[in-house]
Amino acid sequence: MACVNSNSVFEAAPAKRAAVKTARLAPSVPWRERELLQLKLASEVSGRSIAGLYADAKAGKLKFRDFGGRTLVETKSLIALMAAAPDWTPRDRGKEARAARKQIAAAALRS
C-alpha cells in the first residue's frame, strides 16, 4: 500500500493493525466446546456458505439462536448436521457428455 508521502512507518501500519485484529479474534475455546457459534465460524467449520446455513435452518436441519441481536448456531445441531451427511460415492455424471465430445473429435479427425 503506497502513499504519496510514503515511508516505512506508513507502509507498516496497516500490517500491524491487521495483526492486532486477528489476535483479538483468535478463539481461546475450541469450537466443539462452545454452546453457540457465530455464523461465520459455523460456515468455515462446515464448509457451507452462510446462505446455505440459513437454508438448513429453514429446512429444520439446523438450529439458530438469537442472542444479543446476533444470529448464532447451536453447536450440537451443527455437529448433528455434519454427522448426518451421507458418505461420498463417486459419480459418473459427465459420462454422456464425454462420449459425445469423443465422437465429435473422432469425426473431426476423419474429415
Rank of each mutant, 00 (worst) to 15 (best):
A2Y: 11
S6W: 14
N7C: 14
N7R: 15
S8C: 13
V9N: 14
E11C: 15
E11T: 15
E11P: 08
A12V: 10
P14E: 08
K16C: 15
R17A: 12
A18S: 12
A18W: 12
V20T: 02
V20E: 14
K21D: 07
T22H: 11
R24G: 02
L25Y: 03
A26V: 03
P27K: 03
P27T: 08
V29H: 02
P30W: 05
P30D: 07
P30G: 01
P30N: 07
W31M: 00
R32I: 05
E33K: 07
L36K: 04
L39P: 05
L39E: 06
L41D: 05
A42K: 05
S43C: 01
S43H: 12
G47A: 05
S49T: 15
A51W: 10
A51T: 11
G52H: 12
G52S: 09
D56S: 14
K61R: 08
K63S: 07
K63C: 08
K63R: 07
F64Y: 02
F64C: 02
R65E: 03
G68I: 01
G69A: 05
L72R: 00
V73F: 03
E74C: 09
K76H: 06
L78D: 00
I79F: 00
A80F: 12
A80L: 07
M82G: 05
A83N: 06
A84I: 09
A85Y: 03
P86W: 00
D87G: 04
T89N: 12
T89P: 12
T89M: 09
D92H: 15
R93Q: 07
R93L: 10
G94D: 13
G94M: 15
K95R: 15
K95H: 12
A99Y: 09
A99L: 08
A100R: 14
K102Y: 09
Q103I: 13
Q103V: 15
Q103C: 11
A105S: 03
A106C: 05
A106I: 13
L109V: 04
